[in-house]
Design a protein around this nucleic acid. Structure first.
Lengths: 117, 117
DNA sequence: ACCTATTTGTCCGTATGTATG
DNA sequence: CCATACATACGGACAAATAGG
């Protein structure tokens, strides 16, 4: 699995690293559930700092593309969890926000239905 | 405006700082559009590092509660933008994700409506 | 059940970049 | 053009959770 910095050089390193890993996943050069290079190694390989890679991985975790945690390896999220679970989480967050701003349940639902057409 | 660390001591600093600022906003001890303390000052006041505060502010920006940028002060987001615009953005993101995973428009809308009851 | 190595998570410090006013 | 203040990157240190023996 080859990972390189991706995207415009104007972008910050951590986003370019994230883009590189994202591409590797998209191209399926890494399978779901499989290990990604540990942060330290990847950092050395790319010539950037450990923290920069950790931040990049963090971005991908927020996107639901990878799973990671202390003492564990970074792995490509299983397709199932990257799907159902991820959508469910976004639904929860949106529902909370919509409620906070006084939208009715049907209103919020309609917004989403509309946005998808 | 008084800002203190909030929440369990088991939580990381940056989350406790974020919680403290969030509370100050919620209590309306800071008005929308008003300046929040600059990161460096707040860091000194709380006895934590500058980065810790910047990270906390970053969390709040992701939540849409504050606006910030290079060379600008950190300000409480105007109520309007923290409302309509924010929900709209989340709707867009959810729609994109739901489409990606093959959900029908009505399905996604129903999930949201359901989640709000 | 214990110990140990591995690996991410957080925090601090410092330096430099860069958009804003 | 200059001062301000956030943004990124690097480096070091230690904590904490996991996995393996």
């Amino acid at each position: 699995m080859f990972i390189r910095m991706e995207g415009s050089e104007a972008q910050p390193y951590f986003l370019r690293v994230a883009a590189g890993v994202r591409r590797a996943i998209a191209e399926e050069s890494v399978a779901p559930g499989e290990r990604l290079p540990q942060a330290k190694e990847l950092a050395e390989g790319l010539g950037v700092n450990l923290h920069t890679v950790l931040r990049a991985y963090g971005v991908l975790r927020d996107e639901g593309l990878v799973e990671m945690g202390r003492g564990r390896a970074v792995r490509v999220a299983p397709a199932a969890s990257a799907g159902r679970a991820r959508v469910a989480e976004m639904v929860e967050r949106l529902a909370a926000e919509a409620r906070r701003w006084g939208l009715a349940p049907e209103e919020a639902g309609a917004l989403v239905t509309e946005a998808m057409r």
